[in-house]
Design a binder for these strands. Sequence first.
DNA 1: CATGAATGAGTGTTCATTCAT
DNA 2: CATGAATGAACACTCATTCAT
Lengths: 200, 200, 200, 200
Amino acid sequence: MQVLKEEVRQNILSSAKKLFYEKGYANATIRDIAKLSGITVGNVYRYFKSKENVLEGIVEPVHEKILDILSFSEKLVEEGANKSFTDFRNIINEFIINISKEYRLELLILCTRTRGTKYETIRDDLVSLIENRIHQGLFRKSVLEYKEAGFLSKIAAHAFLDSLLMIISGIDENGELEKMIYILNDFYFNHVELRFEARK
Amino acid sequence: MQVLKEEVRQNILSSAKKLFYEKGYANATIRDIAKLSGITVGNVYRYFKSKENVLEGIVEPVHEKILDILSFSEKLVEEGANKSFTDFRNIINEFIINISKEYRLELLILCTRTRGTKYETIRDDLVSLIENRIHQGLFRKSVLEYKEAGFLSKIAAHAFLDSLLMIISGIDENGELEKMIYILNDFYFNHVELRFEARK
Amino acid sequence: MQVLKEEVRQNILSSAKKLFYEKGYANATIRDIAKLSGITVGNVYRYFKSKENVLEGIVEPVHEKILDILSFSEKLVEEGANKSFTDFRNIINEFIINISKEYRLELLILCTRTRGTKYETIRDDLVSLIENRIHQGLFRKSVLEYKEAGFLSKIAAHAFLDSLLMIISGIDENGELEKMIYILNDFYFNHVELRFEARK
Amino acid sequence: MQVLKEEVRQNILSSAKKLFYEKGYANATIRDIAKLSGITVGNVYRYFKSKENVLEGIVEPVHEKILDILSFSEKLVEEGANKSFTDFRNIINEFIINISKEYRLELLILCTRTRGTKYETIRDDLVSLIENRIHQGLFRKSVLEYKEAGFLSKIAAHAFLDSLLMIISGIDENGELEKMIYILNDFYFNHVELRFEARK
DNA sequence: CATGAATGAGTGTTCATTCAT
DNA sequence: CATGAATGAACACTCATTCAT
């Protein structure tokens, strides 16, 4: 009943994905993972050199995609490409939709279940990206003072990202997912200036 | 060097507050807390009978305030008090502002760092409260279909609560805090119907 | 040097049996047991999920036999089976002889070394059983007053059980054991009325 | 609210006596003792240099009495004083009655609650004393073989001592106590030879 | 390749004992 | 004399990791 190497590897990753998502990285044990995979503890270590390495096997692909977004976005900024906020919205929505089609659970684990690992900063990096664009494209035009606009940018970026992750978590049908993401965009970003009119 | 009792107790609470906030309840050890407090492990147990009891010492006061909000809100609903969404906004904002004047870190720990403890449901209870009011008072009037409105209510409630917590986390001057909370309210709840106009 | 699983398990049980017997359950530590077994603390927990579970591994079989005696005896009483005291003596002696052939130390640990565990009542249950039979079958016929007869029943039952346990502890040859148990019975229960004659 | 030294000392001893008797030496903590005495932990150590020293304060007087019995008895044997078994019974009964009048709880603690301390052998010493006299004065005359007689002597001595302790534990009125001890003597030692008649 | 027994450092917790006040 | 805060070694138990087979 020999199993092919790659099959076992995928088996481990699949079990770990389930457990990391349900219990979080810290609370899922190697024993849990081995048991769910139907193999022994020692054998897990033939495929992955540590527990953190199992996590890497799960989130690294989506992690790289996110790093791509981040550096692509930074490049645009450096080039002074004066994309509008709407363009940015479209780009990031498309990215998120594409990523979550391929790596739903992986993205959620990376962004919400990796406290205590080297990945725990990536969520903040994403927040920063969104924050900058919101600040420049959205709140500067509003009646908000500079300081308040900056802070609200950070908060809204954080909230928007969390909301996106909740949607990805709650919906796995692609059409529905896409629709809900656009509703979310409308909720967060339409008529922003108008909302603060009364403050004048 | 002997130190007065209350001083040590506050010292432990202060260290634990810092560590629970930074690492979460589960990942902060009694040894960490003792070390940061400059005392020994055994001595922590002279002041608190268990690790969970240290947590209680930190969050219990704010926990009770939150339970008050929840039962007060439930009572209003039972009485059929037809308060408008704006009224609800005002009530909850006032509560939050008052609570966070006294307990900043405590509230943040209670709502975001207590996974695995008896407090882990409190955040969801608060989200539920907000979610119901948003759903009834806000999204039903919009062009959103019932299903989407319900889901968005949950997401927005979650995001709004997190945003509040971020503000409390980032601002400790009371005037600033209050101002920012009202800006946040404008951002989340003004002209909601208008945002979805284009979907008609 | 790797050892076979069952060998280690038996090794742990054997070490624990020795230590529980010598020091009592509470005073024997898992570290003691591990050390005497030539393994590490953690490895003990591969075989037993708790210290109490090690105790169970030792005494559970004999515990069940004793529960059998107790319920069998209760059934006889309920059925009103008017067995004579001699019949009872024979039944209980046979039970004890059979049990101690298989489980010597286990019985001794169960009855004398389990203070603070869930087994701590079993000895008193056995004493009660013997006490009732002694009282009804033996001392009521004597010249003793009711109160003294009752108290002596309790004392004699306690002493008889301890004496049995001492015999089991001191003899491991089956023929010898059986012979000694019958001598013990003669010592405790023959001519009981006669012993109190002078009190008339 | 200063208390005289000796008063405090007696207070501690009294509390410890209660607790050692109820929970056993190992399970009673210095904190328990201090609390029940209405003083602080540190102050206990002004009167007794260790927990074991508190125990000594309680049981040492009765311990010495018992050592007296033991050496007195040994002297009689060395002198070849051919006291009869009945004489021995009388002597030991008198001793026990006198001791338990003065030191009821102390005797019980010494003989039944000192596992793990330096006193844990004293009970066996007493058993040995009784055992020798029983063997020489009682069972040698019986139809029992030498080996069985010797073993039964040990068992009966053990049982007799335990029974005595149970009586002391259960009765605190002196007349009642004395009466019950004599009943116990009758039960254990009257017509011993007759009990084994049937074995001929 | 795979096994699973074994390790050892770490967890929360208790308690006899010490010592600055 | 008395206090009670502080210590530190010990406890039962867990788990990522290693390694002989």
